[in-house]
Amino acid sequence: MKSVKNHFSLIIALLSILFCIQIFIIVDRSIEAYKENLANNYSIVVVSKKQIKEKEMLLLDESISSVQELPPDNVIKRLNTNIDKKNMNLLKLTLPKFYKLYLYKFPTPDDIKKLKLNLSKNKSITKIEDFAKTHDTTYKLLVLFKNVVFIFAMVVSIVTMLLILKELRIWQFKHNERMSVMGLFGAPIWLRSAILFRLAIVDALISSVLIFLIFIYISTNKWVLLQFQNLNIKVEVFNLVNDSLLLLAISLIVSVTLAAMVVLGHKEEV
């Protein structure tokens, strides 16, 4: 029972670290997906004296993914004048050209500055409307959300690490005697610490399997999927290969480091 309790405390500590890491990964993925979504809807309007070919526009900045020329009809409609068709066509030709630029990714304020600078290099461009105010608010909100989750994950991880250090002292106390006795009979260090490493690896495997099961459940949970659907984004909550390997590696590294610290901190007592 005591041994199960000792296992349990390390498994819980590992679970909380792994949980924090995976939650941070999900939030990061959600934000990236949301940014992509925003980038698809976000565009910059450029006004030009002359017609600019799409190819030429794309060369101005590498962040531009596509260019759409806005028809002048809407502008003319607003004038609502009784211009005849001939004059209307003439007016259309003399009006400046309007272009909507779409970007590959949701830009940072710096990206927008750079983009504006690059666009203004073309002398025929007279005005650039970047909708900076709306953009900046959305962007800052996303960054704030990501940072808050990151800080939260860090705090939980630090607290868990402190718990693991406490666990380390229990392990040191528990295993010191056995390691000392084995040492008295000439057991090499690897044999003395084999049990400890086996325990650490078993605990790491158990916590990894538990976290896999938790996130497989979360990734198929209807409520969670509905939240992403409401945000109009598609997020991979748990990647069976990449995330599993990452969490397993972290779990093994933490628990094996713990075991190694116990072995290194071992002092022979006779």
């Binding site: 005697e177 056995r178 000392s180 006795v181 084995m182 040492g183 008295l184 009979f185 000439g186 057991a187 090499p188």
Partner: peptide, 17 residues
């Protein structure tokens, strides 16, 4: 360690695992 593998030790407090 090599030497200790050829020694048997008995303590007053047994030192059993």
């Amino acid at each position: 360690n090599f030497l200790r593998r050829h020694i048997g030790i008995v303590f007053q407090d047994y030192k059993l695992i």
